[in-house]
């Protein structure tokens, strides 16, 4: 398992100056057309402080979920797949008394233990206010990525990054994050100083940067916008339609159980996948990108986190 690498801005510029050629000369891309690199993306969203499985008397989800089983599933995937990225699309806070009693420390500790590679912010991350969120995020050993909130002058400013570039098997994977409009969703006093920017323009800017300047071969958006809405509100599906160059949108907020990702034709006629893994850690999504010189394709599974028998 390789550690993620954050390329400095200087390196981006170098790559950009030498043109697309630099990207093509990276070892993985000198593969013969028959050689393939498989990148396994594992993803969760809206885990909502669900540390333990649902109690046995829960009317809907008795005995399902829980971080210990999820962790084991992640470990098994890592032992069988060489190149794994474990990502979360936000709202890891709020929903069980673990959050009321310990303020998020348990959720962060569990995610640290599972070696999450990155997460983005959901609206419920703000439920105890900006200062409390900053205190908890400072304990995270994984980057928190958001590209469309401005945190200037808040304690979150130094804790959130607009993007991160991971390297797996010689493939550069650019990850950026989009959060939902907080107004009308989060009490204004709890997200004071956080400014929201329009997601589509932000996404276009991030994709341009990640692909053209940073030379990423795969671009993933961690989104907490919600899967789809009846009206024209910005959602993952709308984002996929109105942009180009995003390979995969890992969504959240709407607690949508997708058996397989939506495959949406984007502005260039390419495809963007939209995935979401329900909520409460009931599912662990898995999408494999199989990348060769000629093509990029994928397979997927949605794994249920439940006990057998």
């Amino acid at each position: 398992m390789e550690e993620y690498v954050e390329l400095s801005r200087r390196r981006f510029i170098r790559v950009a100056l030498s043109g697309g050629v630099a990207a093509c000369l990276s070892p993985s891309l000198l593969l013969s057309s028959a050689q393939e690199t498989r990148i396994t993306i594992l993803h969760t969203n809206d885990t909502h402080s669900r540390i333990d499985p649902f109690p046995s008397n829960d009317p809907k989800y008795a005995g399902m979920g829980g971080v210990a089983r999820r962790s084991e599933m992640i470990k098994m995937t890592r032992s069988s797949s060489e190149h794994v990225l474990l990502l979360d699309s936000g709202d890891f806070f709020q929903g069980t008394p673990y959050f009321n009693l310990f303020g998020g420390a348990v959720e962060i500790a569990a995610m640290n233990s599972m070696l999450y590679d990155a997460s983005t912010l959901g609206n419920h991350e703000f439920d105890n206010g900006v200062d409390a969120l900053a205190k908890q995020l400072s304990l995270a050993r994984f980057p928190i990525i958001n590209s469309n909130y401005k945190f200037t002058g808040t304690p979150l400013e130094s804790l959130i990054q607009p993007y991160r570039i991971f390297e797996r098997g010689g493939i550069h994977i650019g990850v950026f994050g989009l959060g939902i409009e907080l107004s009308g969703l989060v009490d204004p006093t709890l997200c004071a100083g956080v400014e929201y920017a329009e997601p589509i323009e932000t996404a276009k800017r991030m994709v341009r940067f990640l692909r053209k300047e940073a030379g990423c071969q795969v671009v993933i958006c961690l989104s907490h916008l919600g899967h789809s809405y009846k009206d024209h509100k910005i959602s993952d599906r709308v984002l996929a339609e109105r942009t180009t160059g995003i390979d995969l949108i890992l969504g959240g907020h709407s607690h949508t159980f997708l058996e397989k990702p939506d495959c949406i034709k984007n502005e260039d006629g390419d495809y963007t996948l939209v995935a979401q893994a329900g909520w409460a850690g009931l599912r662990l999504g898995r999408i494999d990108f199989i990348i060769s010189r000629k093509q990029k394709r994928f397979t997927c599974e949605s794994l249920q986190v439940k006990k057998t028998g």
Binding site: A23, K296, C300
Partner: peptide
Amino acid sequence: CAALRINQVDLPQL
């Protein structure tokens, strides 16, 4: 290579 996009989508049964 840098412009490589998803051009084949094969969704297996869950």
